[in-house]
Design a protein around this nucleic acid. Sequence first.
DNA 1: GTCTATATAATGATAGAC
DNA 2: GTCTATCATTATATAGAC
Lengths: 184, 184
Amino acid sequence: MPATSASRDQIAERIAAVFIQRGYEGATLAQLSQATGLGRASLYHHFPGGKAEMAADLLRRCATELQHRAFRHLSRKQKPERRLARFIDGFVDYCQDGTRACLIAVLAQGSATEAHGEAIARQYGDWLGDLIRTFEAIGMKPKRARREAERLMSELYGALLMSQILADPGVFTRTVKRLHKSWP
Amino acid sequence: MPATSASRDQIAERIAAVFIQRGYEGATLAQLSQATGLGRASLYHHFPGGKAEMAADLLRRCATELQHRAFRHLSRKQKPERRLARFIDGFVDYCQDGTRACLIAVLAQGSATEAHGEAIARQYGDWLGDLIRTFEAIGMKPKRARREAERLMSELYGALLMSQILADPGVFTRTVKRLHKSWP
DNA sequence: GTCTATATAATGATAGAC
DNA sequence: GTCTATCATTATATAGAC
């Protein structure tokens, strides 16, 4: 049933947009209803567990998307420099050139942390490990590779945050441009 | 009346802790009441405008604190490298070695953005300007100085976020250590 | 699968005693 | 300045018709 599936994806996407903009508790069912075009009761048909289930489902989708768009490229059999470039470009796609915050990072703050904080921490720990291995493949020693991996993640997420705060995507795009030149 | 003033600061501090942990809408009056030890009605004595006034007041306090602890040092008549070092150390104090998120950044996301987003953007624009001027004082051209300033802010806030997500302050402390070596 | 109507609980906020 | 009691509103969630 392709129509139903597509619709389901659209629903998830619109719900995600509200969660990103308003946060977990800031997102009310009334707003989610309006954003999706579905009545409140209909939302409970798709997500019997209510907001909690929406968040859990969206987190899974988001992690899958980020893995597929960005981190997946780190495990390819290519030159590590090329893997990093592809990873960065994938991340740029994921956050739409710095105009869209990362839902996982949003839900990692606030009270959703109690329910999903540990899983999110584990996920990012794994992803950081992928980056570290890539930097080691370039020839860096473990310590240096860890620092570089942490720096890359911090810069991407920091620039994303600064762009949002300053309401200026330029910070993010300039950061990406610079990061691309880091390993020539 | 020093006792009253001190108490007011304590109240603000405890309220801030709840806002930082739960976000603006995630922080309920019941939680704020428990955290401060005051009844809900008493909170309205101190903040007649309710949560909205709390947020506005806390944002002012927080901006003042960050200015005083960190950004103030950029305007001193010292070697720019030394100014930057003092700024970084001040920021480390401000976020308690990476264990405490920045309330301004927290409130810059979520629905508090509508009320304070513009003011926050202006404030960070000014602060970024302070950093840019400092880098120019080192001898960098405007473009380069801007990139370095953006990088510094992104790394600090990004590392703070990553530390929070990973529940590991080490990311932040290592980032700070590295940043200190950036302008020898 | 979507809707209307409704139940139930929690929220922000106020009045007024002390 | 703090409290108890209360209000009005809004929130999440459910029942049941279509």
